[in-house]
Design a protein around this nucleic acid. Structure first.
Length: 565
RNA sequence: GCCCCCGUAGCUCAGUUGGAUAGAGCGCCGGAUUCCUAAUCCGUAGGUCGGCGGUUCAAAUCCGCCCGGGGGUACCA
């Protein structure tokens, strides 16, 4: 259990006792809120519970705080409490509690930061889902990164996660794709070709045509039916998409074909279910979903006058299919250019009896690419000029992942290509990764200097780390920050907000770089001091924990922590 | 018209769901480093949190209206 959770538990306990002593019932929504004060001088954690109680018991917040503390047990956890400001209760963690963090990090290793909160809950994360009309390009990148990172966050807090890619290999777009392949084949075998107005012009279609000819021979490659060309092209493109995503360590558990929904009659079944629940009516020759009853701004047509579906209908059925496969929570990652249908889909899920909290849409805002002094707006419909693969080849998967994770999905972001290419510490990725590499190099250096790190609980007395020696404010600040990894991950997972992990990493890296560099001015602050083995061991224990924490946080972002740079 | 996201330092953005003196990175200016990686660090300056009202002990945060940027919207895939 992490420190924050433990403190919350004890505060809640104290709150219960306090209310009992007052003979009062717990008011709705009252809880001992806990936060990390902005200002370090106010301690490690603070609660505003006294201010909330003040109104209830009609005494001043500071007085309430004093009474409250008589019910609070901070043994082994809190070193010091104080009542400050308008009535905050501030907690300073006990020194041995911060040192205990190191033991925990060392014993949990790669598991530190994770939790089992979501154990037993199945969640489906659907993302990318670009139709296979061409290779992925830079306009798909934010979706891919946000989706995979959200999935990793769920995994980190114990959920059973599946990643799904949803696509369509029928419809107008796909027919055009098939026609394009037919014509490219004809062209390659020397037939005269007349190009229509609308076809996919990318050279990848020539490659696919060539592959088809190589595979089945020129005779068998020509004069096939449209369906054949469409399926072949889509299949080939899906393969390259899969390979491109693999280059960024993104893999899907399931590739879901839209046509399957129709083949299995799921659209009709879903409509029947909605009808049975009274969510559907007929008017003007069309079938309508009573979406306004479930929070949408207007009712929606689900079957048009000509008997065909609107684009909304199969999407509702697809969500229903996900629930039908036993997922407890369903997450979809969409660009802001596709967010219009979200209220309708939420309404439909609710109409079908699925609690609103189980259906999440992560809507990320548009990206502006800043490259060579030119700003260009990216959407999934634009951006073909840089492919996904070129971007990874040129910048590296880690940089791409960090840059797209760094910003809140809610924020429109500028992707600064020049900064991404920069390999100095101005580039936030390198700043963080270098902190990890620096830890590794310190461990190696210690070895070379003849004072190798002996582990936190080494039996050999000379190399045992005496953690109480880590008493400087800068060291304590680092230890406290390390201890906050679990809550950083947990909050990021709850809020579907990968950028919070980046913020955390930035903070930890900064604390470390600062401390390290101070050793240049003041030799007593250096990590390795051969004449002070006990202190060196203690600091190396901290470095070791730092290394673990940085690596674990980077892992949640899908980024490799490098040992040297 | 209606709906969604955003508006915070010169720039790019945080702000832990209503807390204490609003922060970081970059940039600017000034400084440190016989060094465990100079791929570093420290310091200064820089703010009407888009605007006006409201809610309360407390508002960048919640509510209403307005301004600005982006996106989406009709039995169209």
């Amino acid at each position: 259990m992490d420190l924050k959770t433990e403190l919350t538990r004890r505060l809640d306990e104290a709150l219960g006792k306090y209310l009992q002593a007052e003979g009062a019932d717990r008011p709705e929504g009252l809880a001992a809120g806990i936060e990390v004060p902005r200002n370090r001088e106010h301690g490690d954690y603070a609660t505003n519970v006294a201010m909330q109680l003040a109104r209830l018991v009609k005494r001043s917040p500071r007085q309430v705080a004093q009474e409250f503390l008589t019910h609070f047990d901070g043994a082994g956890l809190v070193g010091e409490t104080s009542i400050d400001g308008p009535g905050f209760i501030n907690f300073r963690l006990a020194a041995d509690a911060t040192a205990a963090v190191l033991r925990r990090i060392v014993s949990e290793g790669a598991e530190f930061g994770k939790s089992r909160r979501g154990a037993g809950t199945r969640v489906l994360v659907e993302f990318v889902s670009a139709n296979p009309t061409g290779p992925l390009h830079i306009g798909h990148a934010r979706n891919a990164v946000v989706g995979d990172t959200v999935a990793r966050l769920y995994e980190a807090v114990g959920y059973d996660v599946s990643r799904e890619y949803y696509y369509n290999n029928a419809g107008v777009q796909m027919r055009v794709l098939g026609t394009t392949l037919r014509l490219r084949v004809d062209e390659l075998v020397g037939r005269p070709v007349e190009w229509p107005e609308s076809y996919y012009r990318g050279s990848y279609m020539i490659d696919i045509a060539r592959r088809l000819i190589d595979e089945v021979g020129a005779d068998q490659a020509v004069d096939r039916d449209d369906d054949f060309y469409t399926k072949y092209a889509a299949g080939e493109i899906i393969k390259t998409i899969e390979a491109d995503l693999e280059a960024m360590d993104i893999g899907f558990d399931n590739w879901f074909l839209e046509s399957g929904i129709y083949e299995r009659g799921e659209v009709e079944r879903t409509l029947d279910e909605m009808r049975a629940r009274g969510a559907i009516y007929e008017e003007d020759g069309a079938v309508w979903f009573r979406a306004t009853q479930f929070g949408d701004t207007r009712d929606r047509v689900v079957v048009k006058g000509d008997g065909t579906y609107t684009y909304l209908t199969p999407d509702i059925a697809y969500n229903q299919d996900k629930y039908g496969r036993g997922y407890d929570e369903v997450v979809t990652v969409l660009g802001a250019d596709h967010h219009g249908q979200v209220p309708s889909l939420l309404a439909a899920a609710e109409a079908l009896g699925h609690p609103k909290e189980t259906l999440h849409y992560v809507i990320y805002q548009m990206v502006t690419l800043l490259k060579d002094g030119v700003a260009l707006k990216l959407s999934t419909r634009s951006g073909e000029f840089i492919t996904f693969k070129e971007m990874i080849d040129e910048l590296g998967a880690g940089v791409v992942r960090y840059f797209f994770s760094m910003r809140s999905p809610d924020a429109q972001m500028t992707f600064d290509w020049g900064l991404a290419k920069d390999t100095s510490m101005d580039n936030p990725v390198y700043y963080v990764q270098y902190a990890h590499a620096r830890c590794c190099s310190l461990m190696k250096k210690a070895q070379e200097e003849g004072c190798p790190y002996g582990g936190i609980d080494a039996a050999d007395g000379t190399s045992r780390a005496d953690l109480a020696l880590l008493a400087l404010p800068a060291e304590q600040a680092i230890l406290r920050a390390l201890g906050r990894l679990p809550e950083a991950i947990d909050t990021a997972a709850r809020e579907l907000a990968p950028h919070q992990v980046c913020n955390y990493l930035q903070e930890v890296a900064q604390l470390f770089h600062n401390f390290f560099t101070q050793g240049n001015n003041d030799p007593s602050l250096r990590i390795i001091q051969t004449d002070k083995p006990a202190l060196t061991q203690a600091r190396l224990a901290m470095i070791d924990a730092l290394r673990t924490v940085l690596a674990n946080a980077l892992a949640v972002l899908g980024i490799e922590a490098m040992d040297r740079m």
